[in-house]
Simulated assay, not measured.
Amino acid sequence: MFCPECKTMLISSGGQLKCRKCGYIRKIESTEHMTREKKRTENEITIVDDEDDKVKTQPTMQIKCPKCENNLAFWWLRQLRAADESEVRFFRCTECGHTWRQYD
């Protein structure tokens, strides 16, 4: 819950909610339920795997594959080196699945 005066989060203490910033105090009524979100277990996490359906959602680019010479590949960027250096562009051929990288 948040303070109606200053919009800061209220802290529960001694059966009441207190605002650290402005001093607003509100008693907790028995009808109000204050619960913490329970942590998820591994069984509750849903993993979406689109490899079985062969659904490809990555952007494509016209570039020649060094293995099969196909002219279309998926691409993505990753920061592999220090933050002040440029990203590395990865490509995966749409035909043979060969993956290669290109440095800028």
Results as ranks from 00 to 15, higher is better:
F74K: 01
C96G: 10
C6T: 07
R40M: 15
Q102N: 11
K64M: 09
H33G: 05
K18T: 03
M34W: 13
H33M: 07
L17V: 08
V48T: 10
A82Y: 03
F2N: 15
Y24D: 01
I63R: 00
D50G: 07
F91R: 00
N43R: 15
E44Q: 15
Q102W: 13
Y103L: 15
F91N: 00
N70Y: 09
E44S: 13
K21H: 11
E44D: 14
S12N: 10
I25S: 08
E37P: 03
T99N: 12
V48D: 06
A82R: 05
E42W: 09
K56H: 14
F2E: 15
R78F: 04
Q79N: 09
E51L: 12
D53Q: 11
L72M: 11
T46R: 03
K67I: 02
C3K: 00
D50P: 03
T57G: 11
D84Q: 08
L72T: 07
C68S: 03
R101S: 10
E5Y: 10
L10Q: 01
Q58G: 12
A82K: 07
F74T: 04
S86H: 14
M9G: 07
F91D: 00
Q58I: 07
L77I: 09
G23S: 09
Q79T: 00
R101K: 13
E51R: 13
T60D: 10
R40H: 14
K21S: 10
E5M: 12
K18E: 05
E37G: 15
R40D: 03
I47G: 03
G97R: 03
T8W: 09
M61F: 07
L10G: 00
T35N: 10
E69A: 08
V48Y: 08
C3P: 00
Q102S: 13
W100K: 05
F74M: 05
E32A: 13
C65M: 01
L80M: 13
K67A: 06
Y24Q: 01
C6W: 02
L77C: 11
S13H: 12
R92E: 15
